[in-house]
Amino acid sequence: MPPTLSGLHHVSALTADLSRNHDFYTRVLGLRLVKRTVNQDSPGMSHLFYADALGTPGTETTFFDFPRAAREHRGQGAVSLTTFRVTGEEALTFWAGRLTGLGVPHELTRRDGRPHLPFEDPDGTRLALFDDGGEGPRGGPWAGTDVPAAFQLQGLGYSGSAVGDLTPTRDLLERGLGLREVRTYDLEGHPTHVFALGSGGPHAELHLSVRPDLPRARPGAGGVHHVALRVRDEAELSAWARHLTAEGFSHSGEVDRHWFRSVYVRDPGGLVFELATDRPGLTADEPLETLGQTLSLPPRFEPRRATIEAHLPPLTTQETP
């Protein structure tokens, strides 16, 4: 088995309105736009990365632009919750007040023994903030938001999904990706199984709810396309590709994404997992001070820059209040 996966790298979802999406994740949630680029498999489509001030793996949420797309039909075989970590009850109280003031419906509840603050973005992407108790890595504070540094999002927490049959997904997670089941809890009357990556913790878990009562999900705006898991470097990624092949799991092979290298593997139930390297990182081609301010393209797309820029929809930004 290759070295263990250390946590979530990023989560990639779909939006029907890029400017509205940018406003929500920067102005409301206080994240930094750290990369403005394109979908490398379809370069006529914008792709935005939001993260902490440093663009640190494990804090990244990304969105592909599908203008005017219909919303996701929710169901099994899909990610059902993306979480962000904050620290302390005072932080959750701050966020409850902030969301109220900005007109974002929310509720304070408990899940898996921790206080949670669930809400949705304008596309219907299901999100939650939860108190991580000070566990896990700390994000770099972003000075470009009015959210106080102590209350800023510390990075991604666990990813929650709904599956119709846990057996094939468990096989991929345990035998294919080296995760281990560490506990279960009840969620709305349905068993939810928690799988840990590496040493575990609130930043390094996948929560799978068994929901045979749900229809199969259909992709759309607000849905999550894939969850990426952290691999340290290219040597480890190659080892994971060989391991998956040896264990009989089909995968994409190694894919060069310029800021990281990836291997994609699909669970038979529909979930897509990406293994992504931490290096070279989002600052490999842009100074830290100006991340996300201009269109950044992988070198193979540079000869087509003028054409790509001419066809991308404009990104309208708003000032932080």
Rank of each mutant, 00 (worst) to 15 (best):
A241F: 03
A241S: 15
A241R: 13
A241E: 15
H243S: 10
H243G: 11
H243T: 09
H243C: 11
L244A: 07
L244R: 03
T245C: 04
T245A: 14
A246R: 14
E247V: 02
E247M: 12
E247N: 02
G248K: 05
G248H: 06
G248W: 08
G248L: 01
G248N: 06
F249H: 07
F249T: 04
F249V: 03
S250F: 12
H251K: 05
S252I: 07
S252Q: 08
S252L: 05
G253E: 11
G253Y: 09
E254S: 08
E254G: 12
E254D: 07
E254I: 15
V255M: 13
D256W: 07
R257T: 09
R257Y: 04
R257W: 06
H258Q: 13
H258P: 07
H258F: 15
W259Q: 11
W259A: 12
F260L: 02
F260S: 00
R261W: 10
R261V: 01
R261S: 12
S262F: 12
S262N: 13
S262M: 09
S262H: 09
S262P: 13
V263L: 14
V263A: 07
Y264V: 04
Y264T: 04
Y264A: 01
V265H: 00
V265W: 00
V265N: 02
R266T: 13
R266C: 07
R266A: 15
D267F: 00
G269K: 00
G269T: 02
G269C: 02
G269H: 00
G269R: 00
G270E: 02
L271R: 00
V272H: 07
F273S: 00
E274I: 00
E274G: 05
E274D: 11
L275P: 08
L275K: 05
L275W: 05
A276V: 03
A276G: 06
A276C: 04
A276F: 06
T277K: 03
T277Y: 04
T277H: 02
T277S: 08
D278F: 05
D278R: 10
R279N: 13
R279T: 13
P280S: 04
L282N: 12
L282M: 10
T283D: 15
T283A: 14
A284S: 14
A284H: 12
A284M: 08
A284G: 08
D285H: 09
D285S: 10
D285K: 03
D285Y: 02
E286D: 13
E286M: 08
E286R: 12
P287Y: 05
P287I: 05
L288Y: 13
E289L: 15
E289C: 10
E289Q: 15
E289S: 15
E289V: 14
E289N: 09
T290F: 08
L291A: 12
L291D: 09
L291I: 09
Q293N: 09
Q293G: 13
